[in-house]
Design a protein around this nucleic acid. Structure first.
Lengths: 160, 160
DNA sequence: GCGCTATCGTTCGAATTTGAACACCGGGTA
DNA sequence: TACCCGGTGTTCAAATTCGAACGATAGCGC
């Protein structure tokens, strides 16, 4: 990499907007979910992922990867959610090492109660602010960016 | 808000891509900065903000707001950076309550050393992945979204 | 079967973040 | 002057996150 290619004005504008939006959006989601359902944004995502999986269960490693969290971090959060009765652990019969996290009925109920408000906020703060062209560009551009980052397992430490 | 308007396929695609990109990007930045300069992403941003400010100094509250961090979190980080000699505190002569964080020469040097690699990574992982139209759409769309979030001080708890 | 490597989930201590007090002081107001 | 209000930065304990190390075990080649 020869001399650094600095960002043009528009590039810097895009980068700043991206960072700011990501940070503020995360804060707002956290706030709202904590208030409405007593969940952190991360916990909500965990439940949502489980809800979308067949039988409402996923292996710990898969789940950690899905929410881009470290293994130990997930162990901690599943512990919290289990205490709250929203999730339970299930041993895998074929592989004693593996553990499934399973969404309980309480978890499902809480998620269904929280989802509408969550979606509404996502709309209000991001989706409905964008024009259709901007929406498509965002989906395409960021989709490609995230795909690439997920692809090269070298730098990404596997899936953490 | 009557019944919830769920996200269309494309909307969900955009939202997922946004979240994933934000998370992964943050992880990569953190990794690279920690490796190359021994700084967390947050610490880098703090130094960068100071560097961009007149005289390389900002009040604690301004700085906290600029990097979207809580006051106490900033106190902690400035403490770390001060110990490392990258920043120092300066009392304000006109108002004894106020404290300025000032970028030291070491801080400037470290930042200048780290910046090229940082920018290169931003390019590689995001900017250069996007087409010019996508870049503009992202800058416009997310710029508007972040502006709106910063605007309504009600929900945003001021600047935290 | 034996040994080796990789994967799985957990554990542990340290680092960081959070949110609620807290002490301090400037600026108004009586 | 005395009083309160609002903003400033810090402190503190609790919650969370991180990263390395660990014990257990599957999968593979011999």
């Amino acid at each position: 990499m020869g001399r650094p290619r600095w960002l043009s004005a528009e590039e810097k504008r895009a980068w700043t907007a991206f960072r700011t939006t990501a940070t503020l959006l995360h804060q707002r989601m956290d706030q709202q979910l904590k208030r409405d359902a007593g969940l952190s944004h991360l916990q909500y995502e965990i439940l949502a992922r489980l809800s979308g999986a067949p039988d409402g269960e996923l292996r710990m490693a898969e789940l950690a990867c899905a929410v881009s969290n470290s293994k130990s971090g997930l162990t901690y959060q599943i512990g919290q959610l289990e205490q709250a009765g929203l999730v339970r652990r299930r041993a895998c019969e074929s592989d004693p090492r593996a553990v499934y996290a399973v969404l309980t009925d309480e978890g499902t109920a809480l998620l269904e109660g929280a989802a509408p408000g969550h979606v509404a906020l996502v709309r209000e703060l991001l989706i409905d602010v964008l024009t259709p062209e901007q929406l498509r560009a965002l989906a395409d551009g960021l989709g490609e960016a995230s795909r690439r980052m997920l692809a090269d397992g070298d730098t990404s430490a596997g899936c953490l």
